[in-house]
Computed example of a mutant assay.
Amino acid sequence: MSNGTSTSQYINAVRMNNFNQADGIIVTEHPLPNTLSQAWRLMYEKNVFAWVILDTQPENEDTLKLYPPLLSEGESLQFEHLHIRSEDTVQYEDFRKIRVTLALRRSTASPTHIMYIYYLNGWPNNSDIPIDNIALIKLLDHIHHCNPSANQPIVFTCSDGVKACGVAATLENVLQRIQLQGEVDIYTAVQRILSARPQFITSW
């Protein structure tokens, strides 16, 4: 059992429209120790379906202090208003998936929320693109099959909240358009992402 408290209410998050859903994508930097509880509360309040962790941090003591683990396999977290529990983990070739249950503490009337954390393999935090571009496509395709109505937002997270997230959000828009209309329109997807935050795309 782990316990967390936070001294800050600020979360560096940007909401943007998906191809077919307003605010269908939320982009955040990796939570810091003093914002982890607020990040989890965001997942509950926005009814998030998938929280996708894109880049991989070096495994050393300094990194773990700066970027605390979101939730380990079999772990539970308790914050002031929220209880989070890891239910089960599935390892795929290109990513790892953890099913998570969230519930408000001291409330039996509020619904329990089930969501999923996805950890993409093979995207070093100092790289502009993943080692295997197909891996990200496979991950997003998996999410689409698990959430076919796409009526719950996806959260993309990377260490700086910009570089990897911009690529993933653009690709998500492209794939949604292909799925719904059978069209490939990279230009419109890029413009949609740039309108949310110009720093998301540095070159294309």
Results as ranks from 00 to 15, higher is better:
Ala103Tyr: 00
Asn121Ser: 09
Leu139Val: 10
Ile98His: 07
Leu136His: 03
Leu140Ile: 15
Lys97Met: 14
Ala103Trp: 09
Met115Ile: 14
Ile137Gln: 12
Thr108His: 11
Leu102Gln: 15
Tyr116Val: 14
Leu102Gly: 02
Ile143Asp: 09
Asn133Leu: 10
Asp94Thr: 06
Lys138Asp: 07
Asn125Pro: 00
Ile129Ala: 05
Tyr119Ser: 11
Lys138Gln: 12
Leu102Cys: 14
Asp141Tyr: 07
His144Leu: 02
Tyr118His: 14
Ile137Leu: 15
Tyr116Met: 01
Gln91Tyr: 10
Lys138Ile: 05
Leu140Pro: 03
Phe95Tyr: 15
Ile137Thr: 12
Ile117Asp: 12
His113Glu: 01
Leu102Met: 15
Ile131Cys: 13
Met115Cys: 14
Arg99Glu: 08
Met115Glu: 02
Ile131Phe: 02
Gly122Asn: 03
Ile134Ser: 13
Pro111Arg: 14
Asn133Lys: 03
Leu139Gly: 01
Asn125Asp: 15
Ile137Pro: 03
Ala103Asn: 11
Pro111Leu: 07
Ala103Gly: 07
Met115Phe: 08
Leu139Thr: 09
Ser107Cys: 05
Gln91Ile: 04
Asp141Ser: 14
Thr108Gln: 14
Lys97Cys: 13
Gln91Asp: 10
Arg99Pro: 01
Ile114Gly: 00
Asp94Ser: 08
Pro130Asn: 12
Ile117Arg: 10
Tyr116Leu: 02
Arg106Leu: 08
Leu120Cys: 05
Arg96Glu: 08
Pro111Phe: 01
Ala103His: 09
Phe95His: 11
His113Tyr: 08
Ile134Glu: 13
His142Ala: 15
Pro130Met: 10
Leu104Ile: 11
Val100Glu: 05
Ile129Asp: 03
Gly122Ile: 10
Asp94Ile: 01
Ser110Gly: 04
Leu139Trp: 00
Ile134Tyr: 02
Ala135Arg: 09
Lys97Asp: 12
Tyr92Ala: 03
Asn121Pro: 01
Val100Leu: 13
Lys97Phe: 02
Lys138Gly: 05
Thr101Asp: 10
Leu136Thr: 11
Asn125Leu: 01
Tyr119Met: 04
Tyr119Ala: 10
Arg105Ala: 08
Phe95Leu: 07
Ala109Arg: 15
Val100Lys: 08
Ala135Met: 14
Pro111Met: 12
Asp128Met: 05
Ala109Gly: 00
Ile98Gln: 15
Thr101His: 09
Ser110Asn: 01
Lys97Gln: 02
Trp123Val: 14
His113Ile: 06
Gly122Met: 06
Asp128Gln: 04
Asp128Ser: 09
Tyr92Met: 04
Ala109Thr: 09
Ser107Val: 07
Leu120Phe: 08
Ala135Asn: 08
Asp132Asn: 13
Gly122Ser: 11
Gln91Glu: 12
Asn133Arg: 05
Ile114Leu: 09
Ile117Glu: 08
Ala109Ser: 12
Asp141His: 03
Asn125Ile: 05
Arg99Gln: 06
Tyr119Lys: 14
Leu140His: 06
His142Cys: 14
Thr112Met: 05
Asp132Gln: 06
Asp132Met: 03
Ile98Gly: 00
